[in-house]
Design a protein around this nucleic acid. Structure first.
Ligand code: MN
Ligand code: MN
Ligand code: MN
Ligand code: MN
Lengths: 156, 156
DNA sequence: ACTGAATTGTACCCTTGGCTACATTAGTCT
DNA sequence: AGACTAATGTAGCCAAGGGTACAATTCAGT
């Protein structure tokens, strides 16, 4: 009785994942992709607030490497989602929900970077890769990363 | 002289990455995001060819969890990019370039899954997370994953 | 208080990647 | 051969996220 309960089901004849299983996985990846940008904005806004006491649209745009109308449009979406507030010609502020999201996203970002560094990935690659990968790591994967770091530290 | 040459430069006063550095990282993540879908399609087409000897539009759509017009539109884009060919009412075929891409993407996918499994991530989470994360892992990160697996195997 | 520069806002355009609805073709079974 | 079904193609809609060009406002420095 060595069978792993959570083993992925594959079609015996094709050695591919079953169709509905695979469709669900791609669907989850699509969902994650659609929130990735928002997560990055919220994290960045929190960082700017912490560093400069305010988050200006221009700074956000510069940091994101995007033109200011593009940034403004994304910020409008964040407002609609209740993550951010702003009054004309004033800065951008995180709502309660925005701050909570920022905190989670920031912790995840740090864990991801730390993990890659611990594995021996050069710093710049670790930062760049983490910026993309972080949005697709489930709680289970983050937990595994944490265990790995814990083990490293324990074993000096 | 312990300074790491590849250490990320941060603004000393704000403890944030410098603006152009961070903008470049977000830019790279955007680029990766825009090729992620194409990579998944090409990988899937190769898998279907291997399993069934052909790749039909309907099967691709079902596997991707998407309606067939959506799949067809993506396939049209793959044609434009020279990764795929097709004649009306016949199947989809990978070009030389498409097959090469498929091979690289498939190897990367397997490495990613194997790595997560080795870390103790449950199989279904490993598969799902890999589907998203794979597109953002640089060569440096993939190499680190490979080293980790090698060490595991060596140390029994 | 004025003026010029920087910031912010707005209008409009494009591509990607979703969808539904409908038309056409191919394939299968009697 | 004809008819039904499945597959494929096409048209048109939408939202997100990128861009340019230009208008309006704020802010600093004189
Ligand atoms: Mn990110
Ligand atoms: Mn991040
Ligand atoms: Mn994928
Ligand atoms: Mn894949």
């Amino acid at each position: 009785m060595t069978g792993n309960l959570s083993e992925t089901r594959v079609d015996a004849t094709t050695d591919m994942p079953e169709e509905p299983t695979q469709a669900l996985r791609f669907g989850r990846a699509r969902t994650a992709r659609s929130s990735a940008l928002q997560e990055d904005y919220v994290e960045l806004i929190a960082d700017l607030m912490a560093a400069h006491g305010e988050a200006r649209a221009t700074d956000i745009a510069k940091r994101m490497g995007v033109t200011h109308p593009t940034a403004l449009k994304s910020i409008t979406r964040l407002k609609r989602e209740g993550l951010v507030t702003s009054r004309p010609y004033r800065g951008i502020f995180l709502t309660e929900a925005g701050q909570e999201l920022a905190q989670r996203v920031r912790a995840r970002h740090r864990l991801m970077v730390e993990f890659l560094l611990a594995l021996g990935v050069p710093a710049e690659a670790a930062e760049a890769d983490a910026e993309g990968m972080e949005h697709y790591a489930s709680e289970a994967t983050l937990a595994a990363f944490g265990r790995f770091l814990g083990r490293l530290r324990r074993d000096i």
